[in-house]
């Protein structure tokens, strides 16, 4: 029971950076833009967060810097993809490579100094409940923030006029433009939101999860977040389930020895990547279900006519 409880809590924590990054990318893709550079933006967020933290500023500013860093990095992609109408795959890859370089450069002096991680919240009463308290009420504030943001993104996309406009632009930018929406401007905002969320996911890794600077510390999580959006078939709720699934894989990998799995560590390390492929295959086979919420104009450059 103890093991189950601790693995449940650990899964939620491991899923948190994925939830941030994938929710951000979901909004970007809903607007019809495909940004492959999540990995780069997460790394920049992770590095910015530690940078500001080591400079002696309070944690909230460190997280804020990561958010700003991610959003600024996403602008690099935005200018290419939206203003210069370049191939979005290539622009995203440029950002992924650039982000890896910039973050490694910023982090060159960090060494292996550990960060005083953001501590779990103690909610009087709730946190002390046996079992349930440990499972649900002993997390750091960013875990709760990820759920708040999930609710906010779902509400925004499906319950607000701006969300409707964003989805309309993703479906048919020409029609949306014709009825007066500023396609490029809204797409810029979506891209920056995606960058900010990826930055937040990166900050979670460097300030809570790991918590120290390691070069390329995202280890493919940016790409897994991208896969989660496909897995979710562009629906927010399934992003959460997908993130938990991958969070669970990560924990299984870490706890593998503890629960008596006697396989080489590399096999366990490969689990999240193999699982991503398996899940993608299972989901993608059903073309009709995939097409349901797919933003039709995804990755196609838009240029207003007239």
């Amino acid at each position: 029971m103890d093991l189950f409880v601790s693995m449940f809590a650990a899964t939620i924590i491991a899923a948190t950076p994925l939830i941030f990054a994938a929710l951000g990318e979901l909004v970007v893709e809903k607007s019809g833009v495909l940004n492959l550079g999540i990995e780069g933006m997460m790394l920049i967020g992770a590095a910015f967060g530690i940078w500001v933290h080591f400079a002696g500023f309070p944690m909230i500013l460190a997280v804020g810097a990561a958010v700003v860093g991610g959003a600024l990095a996403s602008l690099m992609f935005g200018v290419l993809a939206l203003t210069f109408m370049t191939n979005q795959y290539a622009a995203g890859l440029a950002l992924a490579i650039f982000g890896a370089g910039v973050s490694a450069f910023i982090g060159r002096g960090f060494g292996t100094t550990p960060v005083e991680a953001i501590q779990p919240l103690h909610i009087p009463g709730l946190s002390d409940i046996p079992i349930l308290g440990e499972m649900f009420f002993q997390f750091d504030p960013l875990v709760y923030l990820s759920f708040v943001l999930f609710a906010a993104v779902s509400w925004f996309l499906y319950r607000t006029k701006a969300g409707l406009a964003l989805r309309a632009i993703g479906e048919s930018p020409d029609s949306a433009h014709a009825i007066g929406y500023q396609v490029i401007r809204i797409r810029y905002l979506a891209v920056m939101f995606g960058g900010a969320m990826a930055g937040l996911g990166g900050a979670y890794l460097s300030l809570v999860y790991t918590p120290l600077w390691v070069e390329n510390m995202t280890a493919g999580r940016g790409w897994i977040a991208l896969a989660l959006v496909v897995f979710a078939a562009w629906r927010p709720r399934r992003v959460i389930f997908g993130a938990w699934l991958f969070g669970g894989m990560t924990i299984l990998q870490l706890q593998g020895q503890a629960i008596g799995l006697t396989v080489p560590t590399e096999v366990l390390s490969a689990l999240p990547y193999v699982a991503t492929i398996v899940v993608l295959v299972l989901i993608s086979r059903n073309r009709e279900a995939m097409a349901l919420d797919f933003p039709t104009s995804l990755a196609q450059p838009f240029r207003p006519k007239g």
Partner: peptide, 13 residues
């Protein structure tokens, strides 16, 4: 790595 990213960035632009 930074230069690689920048080069690709400017090239696409």
């Amino acid at each position: 790595l930074i230069f690689q990213g920048l080069l690709l960035f400017f090239l696409l632009a």
